[in-house]
Design a protein around this nucleic acid. Structure first.
Lengths: 191, 191
DNA sequence: CCTACCGATCGGTAGG
DNA sequence: CCTACCGATCGGTAGG
């Protein structure tokens, strides 16, 4: 992939994140790159293709973050690292993460099905984090695994709306984990 | 407001939620109502006005839900009821909640500022729930109030993507609260 | 990478 | 609520 094409893909992600897919015209995209609209079509086949490229980047980044979580670590530790990984992707690739999280519905045809499958698989892997923790021990035995996974992943999926580059995402992930692990109730809990 | 105008607003919310503001044409909206496009303009001044009407409905519904949380209840109970209220709005007005949560950025001018202020105020009220709980007691004294509010409200804000009419939202809110209150760690915590 | 263009569709209006 | 229309813009293409 040429440097120019990479530039186009990056700029497309930025505009799709800022104005939405349907709110971004090929003309605006061309202006952002300093060329005429027609010139874009030597670098990409269509606007849809640019959306799909961003989606693939997002799916790959989020799955790679989960791949880095060690399988043999304690359950609570795995959740902490998974959350760190997710927030790090959002922070370092905010445009890609935003488009992946919010604009997937504007994909057409097979690409839509493919990305939807990636999203489902990602959620599935998060649920496995909790269900494996329950099996191997480390999580309370009466834990509602589905609800716990839904709670954490929901918070993670909303992060693109408030994460700014200046925030320490690792520390924030650890704060979330601390709340999630020991709760908010007001009496001493065992350390 | 005539019944016909209410129908238009409802249908606009539905299409904005399904296809996004920029992905919904006035022609598609007219078709959904079984009239010609030009006829819509006797019921509304513009497409923006329809977006704004939906936003107002959303802001009013979410704030009304928080109004119903008693001020003198214990902190944990207030969080539980606030979460119930939020999820109930999402469940009962899924289209309005979706548009309010996801499409506010496509509002122009003063309406945009107004709705943004409503959203900020809503978040502020959630944070107050936690900070008041910390002051009056009921929450652990070492709680990171900002992180706790961000965690819960983030999860709530993502709910429009997975809440279906068949789910018992009150029960789900209670499950979330249970996890949040006592944590997920695997040893007995005091009841 | 540009110029010039395609048919289709956009939000909105006039006049009835 | 309809018909007929407005200028602007849409994604995309041809030919260079």
């Amino acid at each position: 992939m040429s440097a120019r094409k990479a530039e186009l893909t990056r700029e497309a992600a930025r505009l799709f994140a800022e104005r939405g897919y349907h709110g971004t015209s090929m003309d605006a995209l061309a202006q952002a790159l300093g060329v005429q609209k027609g010139s874009l079509y030597s670098l990409t086949g269509s606007k849809q293709e640019l959306l799909y490229a961003t989606m693939r980047d997002g799916a790959d980044a989020f799955h790679a973050a989960l791949d880095a979580v060690p399988e043999d670590a304690p359950a609570v530790e795995r959740v902490r690292l998974a959350l760190r990984g997710h927030l790090r992707v959002v922070s370092e690739q905010i445009d890609v993460a935003t488009v992946f999280t919010r604009e997937w519905r504007y994909l057409d045809g097979e690409h839509r099905e493919e990305i939807l499958a990636e999203r489902r698989r990602y959620e599935e892997r998060w649920r496995a984090l909790f269900s494996e923790g329950l099996e191997k021990g480390g999580l309370r035995t009466d834990l509602d695994v589905a609800a716990a996974a839904l709670l954490v992943l929901s918070a993670a999926n909303w992060a693109y709306t408030w994460l700014t580059p200046d925030r320490d995402t690792d520390e924030l992930a650890d704060r979330f984990t601390a709340i999630l692990v020991d709760g908010i109730r007001g009496y001493a809990t065992p350390r």
